[in-house]
Design a binder for these strands. Structure first.
Length: 348
DNA sequence: AAAACGGGGCT
DNA sequence: AGCCCAGTTTT
């Protein structure tokens, strides 16, 4: 009779944990081993770290926890204050879902304590649900982020198409989670991917599981993971307007969904794939200040920046804001503001 | 299954 | 200037 099928990579778990105990990064949202983690801080950090590097997220984490120390405090915040505090961090749907989620949790009284329960909340997908369940509640769940996927793709020398490989990695990761230290296992994989098993120039001599790595045995570590080719990024064009009136700037609030949804912005034309003649939004002596470029996920943008003084405006939407209080613009508009000599403040 | 959705780092 | 990276939601 067959005793429990032996997982060929089972041996890596104690090695990863021992390495993690020596080499864990001292991140602001972490605690000493064994200290209970606040689910609110785990959740907040994990949302901020989606598609975002640790150095970029860290100052935002400090600002948010200082201003809103509990999920109840965040739930009570005004939308525009949260969007402003998130400005510059990107993927603004995260901030909109952050607020929705905080309000749901505050209404329930606490965070759900299981992966399945967490998964029902806005902004919490498969990775984040596993991470919070493991880190905050000690549930035996995996947290397979891009780092963990890369580590496993290399350990396995996974040659299937990437969608298939990710499924296999997810199943394997779930089997490997140690019942006594699920959170440490999750963070060990993240840290290994971030500091040793890096996308390029991995430091294999420092890797605690190099002996188990099929990619290293092939001498082809950087070949993995094998991902589909990305599609070309089109270029788009538009014009953005810096309208000033005795020390004030005209700003608008973007529609609540879509690109940069809910964010403060400078008025601009649509961003189209062909250059068009700009139609100034109001009668004034417009001067062309220059151009700014910005790269989004799925297109590159070239914006002409126009500037004018006015005494009055008949723009349909928006409001005047004192120049020195302009804060919380997404980066593309902060670039335009900087070109106009405004110090649109942001974190960092 | 594919597209939408920002921003920054490295070379 | 052009390469790279990374989760969730919507279509």
């Amino acid at each position: 009779m067959r005793v429990k099928s032996e997982q060929p990579l089972a041996g890596i778990v104690p090695k990863l944990l021992a390495w993690f105990d020596r080499s864990a990064r001292p991140l602001p949202w972490r605690r000493a081993p064994g200290v209970k983690r606040d689910p609110y801080l785990v959740w907040l950090s994990e949302i901020m770290l989606q598609q975002t590097t640790v150095p970029h997220a860290a100052p935002y984490f400090a600002a948010f926890t200082s201003r809103w120390p509990t999920v109840e405090a965040l739930a009570a915040a005004r939308d525009e204050d949260v969007m402003q505090a998130w400005a510059g961090l990107g993927y603004y749907a995260r901030a909109r879902n952050l607020l929705k989620c905080a309000r749901e949790v505050a209404a329930r009284g606490s965070f759900p304590e299981t992966e399945a329960g967490l998964r029902t909340l806005p902004g919490i997908g498969p990775y984040t649900a596993g991470a919070i369940a493991a880190l905050a509640f000690g549930e035996r769940t995996p947290a397979v982020d891009g780092n963990a996927e890369r580590v496993f793709a290399r350990l396995l020398a996974a040659k299937e198409d990437w969608a298939t490989a990710k499924k296999r990695i997810g199943v394997l990761a779930r089997e490997l989670v140690p019942a006594d230290r699920p959170g440490a296992f999750a963070e060990a994989l993240m840290d290994l991917g971030a500091t040793v098993c890096t996308p390029r120039k991995p430091n294999c001599p420092a890797c605690p599981v190099a002996a188990q790595c099929a990619a290293l045995a092939e001498g082809e570590v950087e070949r993995y993971p094998i991902k589909p080719e990305k599609t070309a990024r089109p270029e788009r064009f538009g014009t953005v307007y810096v309208l000033r009136c005795s020390g004030n700037i005209w700003v608008v609030r973007r529609p609540p969904s879509g690109l940069l949804g809910g964010m403060l912005a400078l008025p601009s034309t649509d961003w189209s794939e062909t250059r068009q003649d700009a139609a100034a939004p109001t009668d004034a002596a417009w001067a062309v200040l220059g151009q700014v470029r910005h790269v989004f996920t799925h297109f590159s943008l070239r914006l002409d920046v126009w500037c004018a003084q006015t005494t009055d405006t008949d723009l349909p939407e928006g409001f005047w804001t004192p120049e020195e209080e302009i804060e919380g613009l997404p980066t593309v508009f902060a670039k335009a503001a900087a070109l106009a000599g405004l110090s649109a403040r942001q974190k960092r």
